[in-house]
Amino acid sequence: MISLIAALAVDRVIGMENAMPWNLPADLAWFKRNTLNKPVIMGRHTWESIGRPLPGRKNIILSSQPGTDDRVTWVKSVDEAIAACGDVPEIMVIGGGRVYEQFLPKAQKLYLTHIDAEVEGDTHFPDYEPDDWESVFSEFHDADAQNSHSYCFEILERR
């Protein structure tokens, strides 16, 4: 099963200049909980913004210009990325925008964090048809001392 995991502000903004323009430790914990011990696929820009392999996960970098870091697996196509994951129950696609666009048609599940923030962004989550998805989990949280904005975790499964 292919799943996408993303944090989205208003207007589906997911990033600005290779960074997330908010401070939500709870979302980072949600991300870790849902990706640990699963292969993660990301684009080169996302890889560069993280700066290191995510521990406890097979890191697969999709790029037309593969790098030389041998701590991760470099691939040039969506099919190659899927094959590099091996026989696993769930593959997690973690961004960025172009990689989400490439995998959305193949995805069966979306793990979304909806952030109540209007922020400037240069990267967006692809538009998706809500009628194609069923919400199977939703959990709202107010902003607090650690988390700069209110947010809602949601899991959607393709109908």
Rank of each mutant, 00 (worst) to 15 (best):
T123L: 01
P55W: 08
V119D: 10
S77K: 14
D116K: 15
I91Q: 08
A7I: 03
R158I: 05
Q146Y: 09
I60K: 01
P25Y: 11
V40F: 14
A84V: 08
H45P: 15
D144E: 03
E17K: 01
D87F: 12
V99M: 12
R33Q: 13
I5G: 02
I50R: 01
V93N: 01
E154M: 15
V13W: 02
T113N: 09
H45A: 15
G51S: 06
Q146V: 07
G67E: 14
I61L: 14
N59Y: 03
L24Y: 02
P89W: 09
E134W: 08
I115H: 06
E118K: 14
N147V: 03
I41P: 01
A7M: 00
R52H: 07
S150T: 04
P105Y: 10
D122I: 00
K58G: 05
T68Q: 13
I155C: 07
V93C: 10
L54S: 00
W74I: 08
V88N: 05
L156A: 11
S77I: 14
G43V: 01
A19E: 03
P126K: 12
E129P: 12
R71N: 10
W74A: 10
G97F: 02
F153M: 12
R158M: 07
D127C: 14
Q108S: 09
R71E: 09
W133H: 05
V136Y: 08
R98A: 09
L112H: 09
R159P: 14
F31I: 00
G56E: 07
D87Q: 11
H114G: 14
G15R: 01
F103M: 04
L36Q: 13
I155L: 06
G67T: 14
E80Y: 11
F137L: 12
I91W: 13
A83H: 06
P39H: 15
Y151N: 10
A145K: 08
E118S: 14
F31A: 00
S49C: 04
D131Q: 03
P53V: 05
K58T: 04
R158A: 06
L54C: 01
K106R: 11
R71Q: 07
I41R: 01
I5Q: 00
M16N: 01
K32L: 08
E139M: 07
E139H: 08
H45I: 01
E154V: 15
R158P: 05
K109W: 12
